[in-house]
Amino acid sequence: MKFSKVGRVAVIAAVAALSLTSCAANESGASEGSSDSTLSGELVGIGASSQGSAQEAWIAGFQTAHQDVTVNYDPQGSGAGRESFISGAAAFAGSDSLLSDDELAGDFASCAPDTKAIDLPVYISPIAVIFNVDGVDELNVDSATLAKIFSGEITSWDDPALVALNPDASLPSAAITAVHRSDDSGTTKNFADYLNKTAPDAWAEEPSDTFPFQSGEGAQGTSGVVSAVSNGSNTIGYADASKAGDLSTAKIKVGEEFVGYTAEAAAAVVEESPMAEGREANDIAIQLDRMTTDPSHYPLVLVSYAIACQEYADAEDAELVKEYLTYIASEEGQTVAVDAAGAAPLSSELSAKVATAIESIK
């Protein structure tokens, strides 16, 4: 195994903790058949739990083609992923949030001196509003009502605002348990960004990886939120749609209609959103347009990034990261994510930009 010199001890610890991940991927087929690949080594990524299902499938596919490579991805959350990457404890990060200006202004332990990291969109997914309410199978919400539920202003399921949006539903006179992420989460930041942009009077707080209110119930990671909503009573939460499972999901108001999530509707928002300004040429940061009124769009969407060095201090890190990201951003890799996680594939235009950026990694 060869990693960047800085953070080597932390990486070794992470690999030990993650050994079951790589074993599971190998058992899924990576150790079978033959491969002409000469690539070898171990690669550690840490980050967004939203990418969890896709990463499992990507790892299995990549290790099938490169049988002397072990890839470990620990879905600790976007904040933890960026911190680990910055410190050199991971060769790449998965993050539902872009690198901030402050992060970009600092140093990256795994990167060559005087070089920076880049954001590469590799995973597009709707954020589902999941709920588990006695006697209710369908639920409509608008962004202002959703904001008031999660800020703690609306506390009962038979609140007049919810009744008005759901006149045919038998909403119980029961307390709402709103479940949010307790860890720093890019999913939280995207959820908050949607509410802040579309209902600023109800959600005035600036979007952040950290949930801004003391109300409701916190849970660790996407799996923690899903578990809390599933096992609780009269609960509501938000999670990457790939993890919604059998839970009921609310429709959100877009224009004059209530819209359920689909991968296609989420991708439509990304396709029409501009690039963020002031970034490096190969830093493909997207400024999502939440304000659409087109009911064929689903603006409660996240773009999850692979964060990598533009130039690595260690040539073996660079080779492994470049090959792995090339695979996950390829047409084959994106199809794998669609099949495994219900993700929306990158458009041909965005895919070409990402491929060019990955090719520039040294």
Rank of each mutant, 00 (worst) to 15 (best):
D134M: 08
D119Q: 11
P75W: 10
T292A: 10
D68M: 03
G333Y: 01
T70D: 13
P126R: 02
S170L: 12
S40R: 15
I149E: 03
A357V: 08
D68T: 11
P160I: 00
S37K: 02
F211V: 06
I149K: 14
Y123P: 06
V270F: 06
S170P: 13
V44D: 02
S87F: 09
G88N: 04
G237T: 01
G342F: 03
F85Q: 03
E257H: 14
S95R: 01
A147L: 14
A281V: 11
I361C: 02
A48K: 12
G61M: 04
T249Q: 07
S97T: 08
V321Q: 12
S125A: 11
A337V: 02
E272T: 13
D158W: 10
I252Y: 01
V71S: 06
G61R: 08
S125F: 09
A54K: 07
V336S: 05
A352K: 01
A308F: 02
L171P: 07
G218K: 14
E280H: 15
Y123M: 01
K243N: 06
V336R: 05
Q287G: 15
T356A: 14
S34T: 15
T38F: 04
I236M: 11
A340S: 07
A14L: 12
A318I: 09
A355H: 13
S185E: 00
N282V: 01
I149T: 12
V254C: 00
A219I: 14
D114F: 15
A241H: 09
A241N: 05
S360F: 09
Q63C: 03
A161G: 11
I59M: 12
F150C: 04
S248M: 07
P295Q: 07
P160M: 10
G342N: 05
A357L: 06
F108L: 05
L18P: 01
A112V: 03
S182W: 03
I307F: 01
G81H: 04
S125C: 03
C111I: 14
S34L: 09
A268K: 06
F92N: 07
S233W: 00
A169K: 08
A89R: 02
F3E: 01
S143K: 10
F150E: 02
P274N: 14
K189R: 13
V225T: 13
D314I: 01
T70V: 06
D74R: 11
A267M: 00
V136E: 03
S185G: 09
G88R: 09
A285T: 00
S100N: 12
N231K: 14
M1V: 05
S110D: 05
A112E: 04
G218P: 10
D102A: 14
G88S: 09
V15K: 13
F191Y: 10
P75T: 08
H297E: 10
I46D: 05
Q55P: 02
S170K: 15
P299H: 11
G29L: 06
E83R: 15
I59Q: 12
Q76E: 06
A164E: 05
V270R: 05
T210V: 10
V69M: 04
D283T: 00
Q76T: 12
L325M: 11
A178P: 03
I59W: 08
R279F: 08
N196M: 13
G221D: 08
D314Y: 11
D137I: 00
I286N: 06
A169L: 09
T21I: 14
A306K: 01
D317V: 07
D201W: 03
Y194G: 00
A161M: 10
S34A: 14
A267Q: 04
A308D: 01
A276P: 09
A91V: 15
A318L: 10
A169D: 01
T38I: 13
Q287A: 15
